[in-house]
Design a protein around this nucleic acid. Structure first.
Lengths: 150, 150
DNA sequence: GTAGAACCTCAAGTGAACTTGAAGTCAAGC
DNA sequence: GCTTGACTTCAAGTTCACTTGAGGTTCTAC
């Protein structure tokens, strides 16, 4: 309650991070975060955990699964508190991921304008959307539209 | 197999749309699509169903749940095959949704550059990220970062 | 010293979006 | 006419990311 403590309880971490205590325990179980224990068995977190949690929340919004996030976090050094440099190494591939996701959404938006707008949002008729249907009988359908087929 | 048939079997719809037959049955159960039945009990789909399925796949990528999509689809006229105009009425609100999602991702990307880059991706220290932690003890943490707090 | 809040573990439940399996029917080619 | 594959229903299983509940302990404040 002091506000100047160096270690945080699970409740403090929960309110500061906006992540429920139950979720924090779950993340720990999955190896995404760690905690020290007080003599009583209560969890004690170093402040650095907040950065880790922020990273987890970020990564989820970008679309990574907890397993993928765990994989990323595993790249951080365990023998010391990660530096800004350590974190920015992790974020490199992200920029591409975010860019790709944005590009997909922009493709969707323009399909909406071009395709739904012109009345051809039909897999059967829109050649732009799905040339495979014209060839009839194979092809991935909407996936093409969504950029899954290079 | 003819390729010129006016009605499609579930297998044909599956290959043309890229959506598994089991998923199509599931969508039907959830009221997202409909089918006629052959005398045998086998499903027969009008070609127009492909447009509906495309819409479903689109909407999912944008981030809508099946329930929300069902709500959107319910706005289409049931007494006739929907026109391009009908579809574009549905897509109006989407553009905003997509824009909002893109804006969030751009916010994330720039946070990565500005915040992880400068080494302050710490909820405890970055005032840009989370002023609430300075006030200590309340506030939503990362949510602020993600734009959930207006 | 006692009430109540906050914490603990462990098991089970939730909801979304499907998939899988069992047991059977129907259609097409030879 | 028979095999093979595509289809049918219905119930149950799966994955993900948690939450909820039971039953018990610990901390804080008065």
């Amino acid at each position: 309650m002091c506000g100047m403590t160096q270690v945080l309880t699970i409740g403090e971490v929960a309110t500061r991070s906006g992540v429920a205590a139950s979720a924090l325990r779950f993340y720990e179980e999955r190896g995404l975060i760690e905690s020290d224990r007080a003599g009583s068995g209560h969890r004690r977190y170093p402040r650095a955990v907040l950065r880790r949690i922020a990273f987890i929340v970020f990564a989820q919004r970008v679309g990574l699964s907890l397993d993928q996030i765990a994989g990323e976090l595993a790249k951080l050094p365990t023998d010391r508190v990660p530096t800004g440099r350590d974190w920015s190494r992790l974020s490199g591939p992200w920029t591409e991921l975010i860019d790709a996701r944005i590009a997909e959404l922009e493709r969707l938006r323009s399909s909406l304008g071009d395709c739904i707008g012109c009345g051809c949002l039909s897999l059967a008729r829109c050649p732009m959307a799905n040339p495979y249907d014209r060839a009839a009988g194979h092809g991935p359908g909407p996936r093409f539209w969504l950029g899954d087929r290079p």
